[in-house]
C-alpha cells in the first residue's frame, strides 16, 4: 500500500482517465438512431414548413395557387363566391368594431384595479397553459 497526497491522487486519476477506452455503445443504438431519423424525415416533410415539403408537392401547390388566382380574376362565374368572401370580411370587420366599442365601454366603466387584476390573471393563465403545452410536447417528443 502507498499513501497518496492530493497531487499524487490527481496524477493517478488523470492516468486512469487517459488510459480508459471509450464505452461501447449498445448494439441497438445505431438502429434506434436511424429509425428516429426516418420518423423525423416523414414528419418534417409536412410539418417542417414549405421548404421541407417534397418537391412534387411544392410544385403542385404553387401551380394550384397560381391557377386559383388567375381563375378568380378572370372567370365571371366566380363573382358570387368572391362577393360572399367580401361580405364575410366586412362582417368580421363589423364584429371587430362592435368588440372595440364593448371593450372601450368596459374600460371606462370598470375600476382600474379590476382591469389590472384581470390582466395579471390572463398573463398567469397564459403562462400556465404555455408551460403545460411545452411539458406535454417535450414528454410526447421523448416517448415518440
Amino acid at each position: 500500500m502507498s499513501r497518496l497526497d492530493p497531487e499524487g491522487l490527481e496524477r493517478l486519476v488523470g492516468q486512469i482517465a487517459r488510459s480508459q477506452p471509450p464505452r461501447r455503445a449498445p448494439a441497438t443504438l445505431q438502429a434506434r438512431v436511424l429509425d428516429a431519423v426516418a420518423r423525423q424525415d416523414r414528419r418534417s416533410a409536412w410539418t417542417g414548413g414549405f421548404d421541407r415539403w417534397p418537391a412534387a408537392a411544392r410544385i403542385a401547390f404553387a401551380v394550384l395557387t397560381l391557377a386559383a388566382a388567375v381563375a378568380s380574376a378572370r372567370l365571371p362565374g366566380l363573382a358570387t363566391p368572391l362577393a360572399a368572401v367580401r361580405e364575410f370580411v366586412f362582417g368580421l370587420a363589423s364584429a371587430g368594431a362592435l368588440g372595440h366599442l364593448i371593450f372601450e365601454t368596459a374600460v371606462r366603466a370598470l375600476p382600474a384595479a379590476w382591469l389590472c387584476a384581470a390582466a395579471a390573471a390572463l398573463v398567469t393563465l397564459y403562462a400556465a397553459v404555455a408551460a403545460l403545452f411545452s411539458l406535454t410536447h417535450r414528454s410526447l417528443g421523448r416517448h415518440s
Binding site: P22, R23, R24, A25, P26, T28, L29, Q30, R32, V33, A36, R142
Partner: peptide, 24 residues
C-alpha cells in the same frame, strides 16, 4: 462516433438507458 458520444453521456449521467436517449 457512437462509442464516443455514448461514453460522454454515460459517464456524466451514470445511467446507460438515459445515455442512450441522449446519444440518440
Amino acid at each position: 462516433y457512437q462509442d464516443t458520444v455514448f461514453s460522454t453521456a454515460a459517464r456524466l449521467l451514470g445511467d446507460d438507458a438515459q445515455a442512450e436517449d441522449v446519444a440518440q
